[in-house]
Design a protein around this nucleic acid. Sequence first.
DNA 1: GCCGGCATGTGCCTCTAATCACAAAAGATT
DNA 2: AATCTTTTGTGATTAGAGGCACATGCCGGC
Lengths: 209, 209
Amino acid sequence: MKFLKIPAATITRLSLYTRALEGQVKDQVTVVSSKKLAELCGVNPAQIRKDLAYFGQFGVRGVGYYVKELLFDIKKILGLHREWHLAIVGVGNLGCALVAHENFTKQGYRFVAAFDADPMKIGRKLVTGLLIYPPNQMHAICREKKVEMGVICTPAEFAQEIANRLVDAGVKALLNFAPTQIQAPEGIKVENVDFSVKLDNLAYFLTAG
Amino acid sequence: MKFLKIPAATITRLSLYTRALEGQVKDQVTVVSSKKLAELCGVNPAQIRKDLAYFGQFGVRGVGYYVKELLFDIKKILGLHREWHLAIVGVGNLGCALVAHENFTKQGYRFVAAFDADPMKIGRKLVTGLLIYPPNQMHAICREKKVEMGVICTPAEFAQEIANRLVDAGVKALLNFAPTQIQAPEGIKVENVDFSVKLDNLAYFLTAG
DNA sequence: GCCGGCATGTGCCTCTAATCACAAAAGATT
DNA sequence: AATCTTTTGTGATTAGAGGCACATGCCGGC
């Protein structure tokens, strides 16, 4: 089972499951069925069982899944049992908001470096106390701080250049907020957070849907 | 052709095409082939032709597509030929950053209302001059300002409640930044911008991939 | 200790989306 | 004017993901 190719959608749903499970933990629920979990996540029960089947057997037939146990297992699958070191590049409005955002820190994502091209910003500190470095120190700093993921919040025209630098500095995973398609070499994972595309989807829906 | 069900992925790609085309306009390119556009967007050329085929015929055989013309046509399909009125709910770090963000304004998305539950914020103005209202005025204000899309930037636990209020106020499209799955009635479109999920994808990739 | 009920795990089927490959057609060339 | 080149538009094919349904196996009751 373990060596099948796992759909990206499955990973995304696992992430959703962890949220629902955390909610259940908070509500003192100890056991949950795929049916119940499916309702909470808005998916098909069989989908959940199949998603989990990629990674092993986690449930008890006739009973369901033990909430805490399953949550622990899924987190381990996703790699959320450890802390991740992130760097932010581009500390404008959005960049600052992200660094301060609880969603990151709460889940074990920790910003350990910040970069910006604006000379006015270099040397200053973010609200979190994080010092802002110029882009040309990216290589050194990223290696020193063991940065594993890079978050790109620059204007679109600089995004590719920054991505190249981050890759060059040994960063293997990029989260791109700039509205542009980034090219990265094999072995580097790029995820785009693209709210202009989402807005366009809404606009289309309201226009034609 | 026009009455086939159009895949959501097609709409998302159309949005990508507009970006690439805007780049080409900037570079003074007048004609582009599906092959070239495909390279720019990182998709298959046939995919582009098929996506466009849902909406009509836009190219010239043996030549390609006239950049400006195609850009205009796609924008019209997506509904980007007009201005859209948005409301933001939750003007914390992220919410403020979004309102100020050029990606929105540049494309015809205009924030015409802002809401927040924090009494300290109500009555104050955002950097853009936008006045912050309490949530209980949502119904009146949204109708008055003809809000068409709502952007939810509240903590996860309030997102559903806010969504309900927005729907109640006649808003038909929601962009949700809170890390939670929102339930909305038939006829309401919800798009999630979920960067914690994206991060989890990266974490999985670095762990297992 | 056996039996019944219930939820998982999984093979099979369906349906949708992406890719291929070719015919149609426009413009260039002779 | 005829032919050649090029690129579109689209029918056919392939791939893949989601859902169904049933057999498997565990727990609790008798």
